[in-house]
Write a protein that binds this DNA or RNA. Structure first.
Lengths: 194, 194
DNA sequence: TCTAATTTTCACGAATTACTGAAATTGCCG
DNA sequence: CGGCAATTTCAGTAATTCGTGAAAATTAGA
């Protein structure tokens, strides 16, 4: 490996974390390298900097492209492919969220839906279905929320993050106003609003 | 494997997804089985229902406990350990978020912090550090937000989810009020509020 | 302390996944 | 249509991860 120390530390870390992120070492390293490179890199430069085989680079770039985390950039009068990562970190976050949802939650959601359509054949199955329905309900709430907020502009998203839990102050105010207007109801019913 | 069809389908799915979730097949299957079981199960029952070796069950239960996703339950006058999953799906979500953050985010955050303290030795390193600073900033915003909302009661959390992007209507109203009060500023500066 | 039930550890083989070099393919230029 | 540069595919091997059975450890009674 042929890199300045700080960059090498970053690249090696991404390689090690790769397994925890569900990608492999090489893919992690290449992503990290592209991310910190000021200019797009071609495959042979990656080979040289990381000290891995050409074919490995080719396959790993292909996987990064499948994740939309590596983008091909062509140069005039150069037949080689150069690659970068998306440069806006918020865009990277969105991409990552989208791809992980696609791979990690959507399949489960559809399996749950299928199973829940079946007729339980025993008491055990009836109970299991009830549990699955709980899980399904939660996942659906989460994905509905996600589909909703992912459409926000980045500025709004950042604003929401910064607000954090303080958002609930606003909700509390709103609840108070509503229950005044309606002639006060039981507080737990307030979650039905909007 | 010795299970009613609906439960088997669920268990097998969790086994297959295991690799994508960063756990292995057996761990996924055991979790799924415990999740849908009306009563806690002991190791031998799991062996019998899933058709895997006793030692594999032992190691997998240990891993599930490390994730706080399997809880030991003792019965009077019975030396065996019985296991369940937490029964509230919201609690499971919290546990999952916490554990994944610990394993997948925190290490990166601390590596980034370390590297950012170093003095860059070249222009390439200077640029790389700037990129890492962007990544660090985003991760820190996200974890701050997470630390904030994870403290909310479940009802409030569910309320927020249900609101989804409509929350921005409230923000817009608030922005409008504030900019009126301050004598109208440029809209993009509004993200600085609160 | 001994015994028997239960759980855990661990070395090994099985299965899976990652990486490589060689060969095949692509695509551009003359 | 060659010829050349670049990329991709793929079969084989290396490395890692998974699952097992046998043996060791633990623990509660006798």
């Amino acid at each position: 490996m042929n890199l300045p120390p700080l960059i090498q530390a970053f690249v090696l870390h991404f390689g090690e974390m790769g397994s925890r992120w569900g990608i492999n070492r090489t893919v992690g390293q290449i992503y990290a390298l592209l991310y910190v490179s000021p200019e797009p890199l071609c495959a042979d430069e990656i080979v040289e900097k990381l000290g891995i085989s050409r074919s490995n680079v080719s396959m790993s770039l292909r996987e990064l492209q499948a994740w939309n985390l590596a983008l091909p950039r062509h140069r005039p009068d150069d037949r080689r492919d150069f690659f970068t990562t998306p440069d806006d970190v918020w865009q990277i976050l969105r991409t990552l969220a989208e791809e992980r949802k696609k791979r990690e939650v959507d399949p489960t959601l559809s399996v749950l839906r299928e199973i829940l359509l079946e007729e339980p054949g025993s008491e055990a199955e009836r109970h299991a279905q009830a549990r699955m329905a709980q899980m399904h309900g939660l996942i659906e709430q989460l994905t509905t929320w996600y589909d909703d907020v992912k459409r926000l502009e980045t500025d709004r998203l950042a604003q929401l993050l910064r607000l954090g839990a303080r958002i609930t102050r606003i909700l509390e105010t709103k609840d108070a106003l509503l229950s005044l207007g309606r002639g006060r109801r039981k507080a737990s019913a307030a979650t039905e609003h909007e």
